[in-house]
Write a protein that binds this DNA or RNA. Structure first.
Lengths: 196, 196, 196, 196
DNA sequence: AATGAATGAGGATTCATTCAT
DNA sequence: GATGAATGAATCCTCATTCAT
């Protein structure tokens, strides 16, 4: 209804339509960083600020909080799928990529820890779908007779390592994740992103 | 028309000093329930309401949000310590009590997952202290040659099971926690509170 | 989640529970004034400010925008009912009171004009109920053989006068309302509030 | 690999000057519909979307919100003027056209109800000018000795019927408008647009 | 010692308006 | 001339915290 009272002040440049894709990507990057630093409840305004865009842009691309978190997860999941699709990656290498995301992305942790929320049924459904994609990707490359071959053990193990990889002491996360895999008797390759 | 005026609002009874302890306990119970239902970010007012006390009482007993969460954890930890102190509990039984709290108490989960902390250094210190108490209690009763005997494995395993026990589907938590212990090759007794 | 960053600055006095009723009344008065000056879409913060209270108080007493508007209407309707219940008021006098509210209260106008809104079904129901109360009050005192005796004519006439009494030129409203009644051939007493 | 790169986004056709007039008309139609459905406060973006144009186009044609509303009214007024200019329309017929717009166009209602105006002096002036044109058109064809012949009665009656024709229950509007005219003792022809 | 109203900062969200393309 | 992304002010609303009673 009411117009802004100071519409005349200098307006920052408007990147034009070309910037749209760039902004979307910047938002996802910013979200991952802010999530890691402040948790999943971080103010959206902080994410927009870090991405260097106005709040409206965030809402244009992601209609709500969950949409943004989901987009961050998508990224993670896609990388794991790509790793799983690469011929020259062993199963252990793929777990290395998975572990990298586990230690890096608070949102990815949230995927399984999903706080006890009132009506997140939709977000939950999304999260489950993503979880399924991870499972499918991993299982396709699971060696015969692997220790985690039984029905539910694979994702259970992932959830367990994820639990071990929690905590705010960033530098400890990878170490603890590796120790967790070891405790499970599972071999893991180098912890690294897929092709960044 | 000339009767004395009634006090215009009924002032709720003031239980006197006796009520103070009762209120404190009620707040902790309420907090545990609300945390489970709404997550650790639930409004403090909801907790006070459920405890049947005013907001001021909450603040009298717990100067800030963390103090309350810590108090809830205290309870959990105390029970585990008591279980560990009981002669007739095997190590597996003690893990059963631990597991019960893991599955029951969102706050207890938060103990290890403790989101990314802007300035929670104090709360973090508290959490670490509590974690240490759990570790000490468990380790005292750890059988010689137990699978988790090595330096950091004990609490690492707890964190892993805690990761597995996450998720909002309440009825699945215990099942998953048990599966996690099994995957670790650790025997666990009945999942139950200590002496409720 | 995040606490205010400057919790230490001097806090304005808190009237205590005694102030609650006073505040509620002040909000209704303020709302009536702001509605008249700025329309029904005026920012709630403006109403709170004029009432001299914080925004939270407004929300405590009126959970949403409609609740506040309804409360203002309640006041209007109650006065009309009281006028209708007074032995010494003629029907024309009662219409005078009604007309006073018509000219004074933008919210009362909104009662019948109720903008073309998406999902105001609840507010609409409330408005209809209030409208019914006005009708009942008037009809009880409607003289036999009155020009507006037929089934729907009474409230239709009220709506018509209300249409005539619209417009922002405050000083013209009463004049136009009276002209409207005259055009309808209905006698109206002095335009005034009931017992202010 | 050596084909010329395709433009990466399909640029919507630019209709050239011919499209300008079409767009303007489409915007007015869209505005009328949206106003009816959502009220006069509907977002401008909704109007642009329904008209099938970008937001920029809306601003090219109508520098501000009021300009658009005014343009919608212009349309209404023009039709009434045309009806009044048609030889074969009786005064009652002309009122029928007027009534059609009254019941159809939320913007037209707003013309007289014009909410409380912080700084709408310009829009108000526009509205008054349009109102004058309606009055002039009607008065030119007003039969001698008509019930509404006296100085201000004509537009007062229009305002009154407009008040009666308010309310969101679309199907009831015409019925109530007709009842209002009847109560005023004024004969009205068929309720219909002028030459659609 | 308890109550619960009040405060007001901060975060969420919407939309008028501008502007690169 | 058109598009639609971007901006950011203003508003809505919630809740931690204080404080009169």
């Amino acid at each position: 209804m009411t117009q802004p009272l100071l519409p005349d002040v200098r307006r920052p440049a408007n990147g034009g339509p070309k910037a749209a894709a760039r902004n979307r990507a910047a938002l996802i990057v910013a979200a991952r960083e802010i999530y890691a630093a402040q948790g999943l409840d971080a103010p959206l305004s902080a994410i927009a600020r870090r991405a260097g865009v106005g709040q409206g842009v965030l809402y244009r691309h992601f209609p709500d909080r969950d949409a943004l978190a989901t987009a961050v997860l998508e990224e993670n999941v896609r990388q794991i799928e790509q790793a799983a699709a690469a011929e020259d990656m062993s199963f252990a290498d793929i777990l290395g990529v998975l572990t990298w995301h586990l230690k890096e992305s608070a949102a990815f942790l949230g995927l399984l820890h999903m706080r006890g929320s009132v009506d997140h049924s939709e977000a939950l459904a999304h999260a489950l779908a993503l979880s399924d994609r991870v499972e499918r990707a991993l299982r396709e490359r699971l060696p015969d007779g692997h220790r985690l071959g039984a029905a539910n053990d694979l994702m259970l193990a992932v959830a367990m390592v994820s639990g071990a990889a929690g905590g705010p002491e960033r530098e400890a996360r990878e170490r603890r994740a590796m120790a967790a895999w070891r405790l499970l008797g599972v071999e893991v390759g180098t912890v690294r992103p897929f092709d960044a």
